[in-house]
Amino acid sequence: MNQYDLARGLHILAVIAWMAGLLFLPRLFAYDAEQNAKLEPLKSEMQTLLRTWQGRLMKIIINPASILVFIFGAWLVHLDIQMRGAAFLAQPWMITKLVGVVLLYGWHGYLSAERKRIAAGTSVRTSKFWRMTNEIPFVLAIIMVLSVTTEWSFS
């Protein structure tokens, strides 16, 4: 096994874990928002449980996986530069991939901030909002994976 295959495999595994968390957390937010319509004490018990899950998901899966995605992705870029030079970084497919990465990290940051607002009871987002935005990471993943696997260009 060479370094590139190892880096690529570890990167893919980290992305799977990160994506799983980014896809599941908004669902927990939706369930949390639905609890606002319920009466106490059932509401508080369920919200406490949901908020515990949200925090654990962020701390145990999403944050560590995102760090590993960055580390293994940077390793892949380093190995690619060694193999084919840095010119590939200016290719449309790679620019698309990197823009997608920035957007995913932005979404991750937004979810992290929203989790804090939910815990503080200041979130204004509805269950409908979370259900509508839940697939954002998957759409970005489709674009990024197809960009990297096809290495498309304008010429």
Score class of each variant (00 low, 15 high):
Y31A: 09
A141W: 14
S66Y: 03
H11A: 02
F88I: 01
R51H: 14
L68V: 12
G121Q: 02
A65Y: 09
E135V: 00
A20Y: 12
L13P: 01
I12A: 04
A113W: 12
K38D: 12
M83N: 07
Y31N: 04
T133P: 09
H11R: 13
S155T: 03
L89D: 05
H78R: 00
L25M: 14
I136W: 13
V15R: 01
L13W: 08
V124L: 13
F154S: 13
A33Q: 12
A113F: 15
T149Y: 04
M1G: 02
A17F: 08
K128N: 09
V77I: 11
T150M: 12
R27K: 05
A14G: 02
K116F: 05
W93M: 11
A120M: 13
L103Y: 05
K128P: 02
P26G: 07
L42P: 00
N134A: 14
L13A: 15
W53C: 11
R131I: 13
E135N: 04
W107F: 15
T149Q: 11
N36H: 14
P41W: 14
E40G: 03
G85N: 04
R84M: 15
L50G: 14
L49S: 13
A33V: 10
A113S: 11
Q35S: 09
W18V: 04
T52P: 00
A33N: 08
L13S: 12
W93V: 08
Q35F: 06
V15G: 08
T149I: 15
G106D: 03
K128T: 00
N63F: 14
K97S: 05
D32T: 14
K59L: 12
P26A: 11
